[in-house]
């Protein structure tokens, strides 16, 4: 009876039980098979327990009991475990299509975990230039994408529950993961390896789009921001924001902190910490550590409210 109330919790943009990619679907199938298998075995064992506890019992003959133990306690577990093991091992290559090395490394999307955000580099493709972005991944539906995964400081882990994974990001190593999104939508990806004080606030959005929208987005991203000469744009450079954050087309390349080019397209501020609104951007600028403990960006609470609001307006494109 509780199932209809509880089961909706399994859906959503960050659930391995609501797959939107081929690898996640395989994991889901494995999960369903294991749950059903486990459930049937559990019911059988409980059935035997009830049978053993029944009131009026007729004693089993020693031979009958021995047969039950030999079949139910030896033969059945051996065969069932063998089948489940074989199924799981057989699925492995499709859950982790690491054998597919047809994509050369430079053509992969490069994702680097840093405390506590994600540096994302798209390669040049089909005449579109390479570019860097942060904390938001956009993917074309129905196309296999390969990621090269790195870490800049400590171990992080790359996991998009709806699409597949996870794969650790280890400093000094490049791990490769390949995914095939099958449904358009917006998904959430948390860092899946404890990486410090703001581990819980380290997430990125994944937006799976149809190919045309994806190509348009790539073109826009590669082109960067258009200089508008706004007050916020001037203050962004004047107060030193541009020393760490690039806004391509407007400021020189910095590369220390998250790239903020076309920030207005993003869904969140601070790698999934807050929704992307001018108020939240202002809050973040004023004191990043209040939102993300341990964040490397210093507090800019010495700036006037007006300056912070202007910078937030420049970034979000909204007053």
């Amino acid at each position: 009876m509780a199932a209809p109330l509880v089961l909706p919790g399994c859906a959503g943009g960050q659930s391995a039980l609501d797959p939107a990619g081929r690898e996640a679907a395989e994991v889901y199938d494995l999960f369903v098979v294991m749950v059903i298998g486990g459930g049937v075995i559990w019911l059988a064992v409980i059935g035997l327990l009830v049978h053993a506890c029944r009131r009026r019992r007729r004693t089993w003959s020693e031979e009958g009991a021995g047969r039950l133990i030999a079949w139910g306690g030896v033969a059945f577990p051996v065969v069932a475990l063998f089948a489940l093991l074989a199924y799981a091992v057989w699925l492995m290559p499709s859950i982790r299509p690491w054998l597919d090395r047809s994509v050369p490394e430079p053509a992969m999307i490069d994702v680097t975990g840093e405390q506590f955000w994600w540096r994302i580099r798209y390669p040049a493709e089909d005449g579109m230039a390479a570019f860097e972005t942060a904390n938001e991944l956009r993917l074309p539906v129905g196309e296999r994408v390969a990621f090269s995964l790195r870490a800049a400081d400590v171990i992080h882990s790359f996991w998009i529950p709806s699409l597949g994974g996870k794969m650790d990001m280890i400093p000094g190593r490049t791990n490769v993961l390949s995914l095939l999104p099958t449904k358009t939508g917006v998904y959430q990806a948390p860092c899946a390896e404890f990486c410090g004080a703001s581990h819980a606030y380290m997430a990125f959005s994944v937006i799976v789009m149809d190919t045309k929208a994806y190509d348009d987005w790539r073109r826009r991203q590669a082109a960067g921001n258009r200089p508008g000469g706004s007050e916020g744009e001037r203050l962004f450079a004047h107060h030193g924001c541009a020393g760490c954050h690039s806004v391509r087309g407007v400021t020189p390349v910095a590369g220390l902190g998250p790239d903020l080019t076309r920030f207005s397209d993003r869904r969140t501020v601070g790698a999934g910490a807050l929704a992307n609104t001018p108020e939240n951007v202002a809050r973040f600028i004023r004191n990043p550590s209040a939102i993300k403990p341990g964040a490397t960006m210093p507090a800019f609470d010495m700036l006037s409210q007006g300056d912070i609001a202007a910078i937030a307006e420049f970034l979000t494109g909204r007053p």
Partner: peptide
């Protein structure tokens, strides 16, 4: 011996199903 027989089979399953080394 029975246990060992089954265990050897379990160890051998990945050999049959895994296709290559992980790069």
């Amino acid at each position: 011996s029975g246990l060992s027989f089954v265990a050897v089979l379990f160890v051998a399953v990945p050999l049959v199903l895994i296709e290559a080394c992980q790069p």
